[in-house]
């Protein structure tokens, strides 16, 4: 037990040295010239930093393009310091980046930047979300009319909704490869639905009531409640979700909970 305890301590010291730069605890374990050992540690540190930056850049290509390399790398360095990866799979690293950007003082002049990051993270999550078999339409057809208002749908695991006060979809589009970064619109409050279909991530702008409906459905709200107020027809949005295979299942009133 003492052996494994000592190994765990040494590994923790090494991790601290290469991620936090705290070398004091690990240098005692390093053989040879201490100066050379520290230079070697620096190689590990830089490689880990570069891999994290790379993962972030891969998940947030538009943010990276918007702010430029130096700004992005420094933001990435600071994110790693306050919110290091929680999972060994670097594809999952970056969920904290939008929130980080929303309070990053140097991004204050770009108040839309955090929302662009949210959109990119939605895209990124949609890409690797689980598959779903799709709703059983025959079973849905068999639901008695009196139980229909209480139906609660579940959405495809890839569905993400980003509601922003800024024209984030226009900014995103303008920063795709081949575009020069100038958005077609400079105003708008974009509600964007992102999902995966046929192996590709798709995004579409929703009208605010449609977005509110999708949001409610996604929370498991009964259809009657999600249907919202008079004067707006939720049916086209529901059919649209079904058409894209985004209704994953449903539950009736008897299976509540």
């Amino acid at each position: 037990m003492t052996g494994t305890g000592a190994l765990a301590r040494m590994q923790a010291a090494f991790a601290s040295a290469v991620t936090d730069g705290d070398e004091a605890a690990v240098t005692a374990h390093l053989a040879g010239d201490p100066a050379l050992a520290r230079r070697r540690l620096a190689i590990y540190r830089e490689a880990i930093g570069a891999n994290r930056r790379g993962a972030l850049r891969s998940a947030f290509p538009v943010v990276a393009r918007l702010v430029g390399e130096a700004f992005f790398d420094e933001a990435a360095r600071r994110l790693a310091a306050v919110a290091p990866p929680a999972c060994a799979d670097l594809n999952r690293y970056g969920d904290g980046f939008p929130a980080f950007l929303s309070t990053y003082p140097h991004a204050e002049a770009m108040r839309w930047l955090a929302d662009v990051a949210r959109l990119e993270w939605a895209w990124h999550e949609a890409l690797s979300a689980a598959d779903a078999t799709g709703i059983d339409f025959a079973a849905l057809a068999a639901v008695p009319a009196e139980e229909q208002p209480a139906l609660r749908f579940s959405l495809h695991p890839s569905v993400r909704l980003v509601r922003s006060a800024w024209p984030v979809l226009a900014i995103w589009e303008a920063n795709q490869p081949g575009r020069d970064g100038t958005p077609d619109r400079d105003e708008g409050a974009d509600d964007v639905l992102a999902w995966r279909e046929d192996g590709r991530v798709r995004m579409a702008l929703l009208a605010p009531p449609d977005a509110a409906f999708v949001e409610a459905i996604g929370r498991g709200t009964p259809l009657e409640v999600a249907a919202g107020s008079e004067g707006w027809d939720f049916a086209p949005m529901l059919v649209r979700l079904a058409a894209h295979g985004l209704l994953a299942g449903f539950a009736g009133p008897q299976s509540a909970g």
């Binding site: 730069g21 620096a42 190689i43 590990y44 540190r45 830089e46 490689a47 930093g49 570069a50 990276a64 393009r65 918007l66 702010v67 430029g68 390399e69 130096a70 700004f71 992005f72 790398d73 420094e74 360095r77 140097h106 991004a107 002049a109 770009m110 930047l113 900014i171 303008a174 920063n175 020069d180 970064g181 100038t182 958005p183 400079d186």
Partner: peptide, 24 residues
């Protein structure tokens, strides 16, 4: 790739956005 790099203290220019957001 890490060998050539040093852990420099952040410089002011690393806080200045110079990407396509200048177009915005």
């Amino acid at each position: 790739a890490g060998q050539a790099r040093k852990d420099n203290a952040p410089d002011e220019w690393k806080y200045v956005a110079r990407g396509t957001c200048t177009k915005l």
